[in-house]
Structure formats: C-alpha cells, structure tokens
C-alpha cells in the first residue's frame, strides 16, 4: 500500500472516530437553511423561488467551515513533514486529501440537500438538478478550498482568512450551481450549467493540486 492510499484510509478512519468532523458541517447546513424562512419570509411561494440559491449558499458556507481543519492538524503534529520526507508526489497527496475532504463534507451534503430542500419548498422538478449540481460542484469547492486551507494552515487564526481568500473564487460555482437548480425549477434546460460545472471540475482537478502542493511546502520553510 502506498503512502497516498494509506493516508486516505487513515484520514477516513480518523473522520469515523471524530464524527463531529463531518456531522458539524451538516448541522450547520441545516441551521443556515432554517435562518432564511425566519429572517425573510416563510411563505411557501417565496421560499420555492429562493430555495435554489439558499441551498447552494448554505452548502458553500458549510464546506468553508469544514475546510479550516483540512491541513491544520497535519501541519501541527508533523504529519506534513513526514509526507515531504517520504518523497511521494505532493500532487497525488493533495488529491488524496481533497478526496477525503469531499467524502466527509461534499458527499454527505449532496446526499442530504434534497431532503432539506423539502423544507425550502423546492419545486419538484428541481431535485435531480440540485443533486447533480451539488455532485459536480462540491468537489470543486473542496479543490479550491484546499488551496486556501494549505495557504492558511500555518496561520494562527486562519479560519476567517480562509473565507476571505476562498469566497471570491467560489462565485462561478455558486452562480452556475444555483442557476441549474433554479432553471430546473421553472422547467427550463439546465444541461449547460452542469456542463460548465463539469469542465470547471476538470480544470481545477488538474491545476489546484499544484497550488496546494506549493502552498503546503510553505508551512515547512522553517
């Protein structure tokens, strides 16, 4: 077993023993959704109009919340140093970490979102669009987020900084993800939006790990 697969397995075991790691973002997701009817308007017609955007914003924020811990522990306990010492490709390592992050944040969100969208009175036609846009979009959130997480891993109060750095980069995903769901809701074609998300996913899968690898090395310069 190579170090990369061993790391993926190990991180999944750690997540299984610390359920908070993947449960907390889900609960946060639920709570953010609950804020909108309370703060704006619980009228079902109004909710179904904003549901697409609100679900996507909440998913994005929940991902952001879970990103801060992505590399922090590894930097602090010396795991990162051992990665670098192992001579394994940092690119593969970064992809592995992102994969684990997606498994414990993006994937559960994708599975749970259709259920919670019921509370937002999402139009019936939009559920498959919601599922597929999240399935394609959340890995991009993890990939881009990993760049920010790697850059801020050595910074003491990195959480807020991470949001500041990453949120502008999330805008295209938010626009196309939410629009896919919205258009499905008004019975319009949404393949184009999904196509954009798919190509953005390919692009970030090839480029983001390089940035992550470069950023991780920064945390070892001392």
């Amino acid at each position: 077993m190579s170090l990369v697969t061993a790391t993926i397995k190990r991180d999944l075991v750690i997540a299984a023993r610390n359920p908070g790691e993947w449960l907390n973002p889900l609960m946060f997701f639920l709570m953010v959704l609950a804020l909108f009817p309370l703060a704006v308007d619980p009228d079902p017609k109004f909710l179904s109009k904003i549901a697409a955007g609100v679900v996507w914003v909440a998913a994005l924020l929940a991902t952001l919340l879970s990103l801060d811990a992505l590399f922090k522990a590894d930097v602090e306990d010396g795991t990162l140093e051992q990665w670098l010492a192992s001579g394994e490709s940092l690119f593969a390592m970064a992809l592995g970490k992102v994969f684990v992050h997606w498994c414990i944040s993006g994937l559960p969100l994708t599975l749970v979102a259709p259920l919670l969208a019921l509370m937002m009175n999402l139009p019936d036609e939009a559920y498959s669009a919601l599922f597929f846009s999240l399935l394609l979009g959340t890995p991009i959130l993890s990939l881009l987020g990993a760049v920010g997480a790697a850059l801020t891993a050595g910074v003491r109060s990195g959480g807020l900084l991470l949001s500041l750095v990453i949120l502008p980069l999330y805008i295209p995903i938010l626009i196309f993800g939410a629009s896919a769901v919205y258009h499905a809701g008004i019975e319009m074609e949404y393949v184009g939006q999904l196509g954009f998300l798919a190509s953005f996913l390919c692009l970030s899968m090839t480029l983001a790990p390089f940035a992550v690898a470069g950023a991780l090395k920064l945390n070892l310069s001392r």
Binding site: R10, I14, R17, A73, D77, G78, T79, E81, Q82, A85
Partner: peptide, 13 residues
Amino acid sequence: LYIGHLSAIKKVL
C-alpha cells in the same frame, strides 16, 4: 528515516 521533534502521531489512532 527522518524523525523530527514533531512525532506525527495521530492521537485518535
């Protein structure tokens, strides 16, 4: 073999 002063031990494992 490199062992730094950080031991890279994961506490939950």
